[in-house]
Design a protein around this nucleic acid. Structure first.
Lengths: 234, 234
DNA sequence: CTTTTATGATGATTTAGATCATCATTATAT
DNA sequence: ATATAATGATGATCTAAATCATCATAAAAG
């Protein structure tokens, strides 16, 4: 009994907030207060974290894994706005700018996420200037990223966008020239605004031209230079 | 002499910060301190407010007029990311997320803007929680807007995007079904990711189909319903 | 273990919209 | 006022990529 009670108390006061990134700016007290409004969640591939048009009540912080943030349109067509991995937030933009989620999020691989009640998160933002300025910096990066994607979508044609995607996986997600993506061809296509057929063709052309090695979901970059050139000339 | 001196002092302590929007959250003292780091600027059509790749040292607040925020790519191709009018900020995303401007801004019509030194702006953000949370809300809206544009670019074809543009002018910029845009056809095309020829053709088709009246830069919406339908079905 | 459903791969066909070319009209500069 | 440049407008042609169709293979479900 005594042990159990102790355990429970210990659990209640356990700090779920990581000691990384912008959370470094929080005091222990702030961490604890925020922590009491945080739920740690586990998601399997294809699990939904939140869905477009639902009331937006949480800010989501990815501890581990990978998720996709996407918008569905009429007729099953989907556009993937971005992926988010460890240390990244999701739904930040909706938290204080909208009362509903403006897009959906689903786990691409096994993912651990912290669901933070947005009111508690806001209280911390209000009281900790360094924390809020850091968040403003993060959101600025997100605006720049989405704008870049917009520019790439309008200026580059398929080979350029496919090269962009491969570069993104290699440089931003896996930090390796060789990697295995859990995404299907369909999902990859949604990430760069094309159809699965066109994506498959372009990937196989890259393979044929010895730019990449391709075996199922495993991609190995043979010529990083060519990938960079393709990505830059569009 | 005496009069002149008085005038000058009065000018120095003059508060340039507007009493609108998120600036309402500032105390008089904060307004004054910020005001000392603000320059009021006048721009004529085509004047550059800031240029891609320049060191980002200011946050820009539009008092009146209209500007375009755009990115140039190789070969004179340009993509317009968004327009910004009175009460809107520009370059917010670069201020604390980048040391350089990631895009350019130019006046579309005669524009008055406040150029706020980003360090002073940050000081206020750090010390005023309501102000920073409001800014976070504004930036969230911007992320949602750019994401929407990305989704529209990938899902809608030309008539849908042209209808989007007309709707945007009518509902967001001019609050009228009849308006005169200072943009050239080329600039309109850049706004919706197409070429001037295709834009001209589509606008003239709309005219022919009695959806709009078109005379040079003056547009009058005849059937708002059709515009909405076109914008929604894409 | 077999059936059913998702995924990956290719070929054939179609099409939206880019590109190229030309000319009229309207601004801007000399 | 006249020359020069920028803009708007249309037609002809071309092409990247979507769409449609089919089949192989892999994964999931019964």
């Amino acid at each position: 009994m005594k042990d159990y009670s102790l355990n429970s108390e210990h659990l209640n006061s356990k700090n779920l907030i990581p000691d990384t990134g912008i959370f470094n700016y929080l005091t222990n007290d702030e961490k604890l207060r925020l922590s009491n409004n945080v739920t740690l969640m586990n998601f399997e591939r294809q699990d939904i974290l939140f869905k477009q048009n639902m009331p937006s009540d949480h800010v989501v912080y990815i501890v581990s894994g990978l998720i996709k943030i996407y918008r569905g349109g009429r007729g099953y067509r989907v556009v993937c706005i971005k992926l988010a991995g460890p240390g990244e937030f999701a739904a930040l933009s909706c938290a204080y700018a909208s009362n509903i989620y403006r897009y959906s999020a689903a786990a691409i691989e096994k993912t651990v996420a912290l669901m933070m009640r947005k009111e508690a998160f806001r209280d911390v933002l209000k009281n900790n200037g360094m924390f809020s300025v850091s968040l403003i910096s993060l959101m600025g990066k997100e605006i720049i990223e989405v704008s870049n994607k917009l520019v790439n979508f309008s200026m580059k044609q398929l080979p350029g966008r496919v090269a962009d995607m491969i570069r993104y996986f290699s440089e931003e997600v896996f930090n390796n020239t060789e990697f295995t993506v859990a995404l299907t061809r369909q999902e990859m296509a949604e990430l760069i605004g094309t159809t699965k057929e066109s994506l498959i063709r372009t990937l196989n052309e890259f393979k044929h031209d010895k730019i990449i090695d391709l075996e199922g979901k495993h991609i190995k970059i043979i010529s990083n230079d060519l990938i960079k050139v393709l990505s830059e000339i569009g």
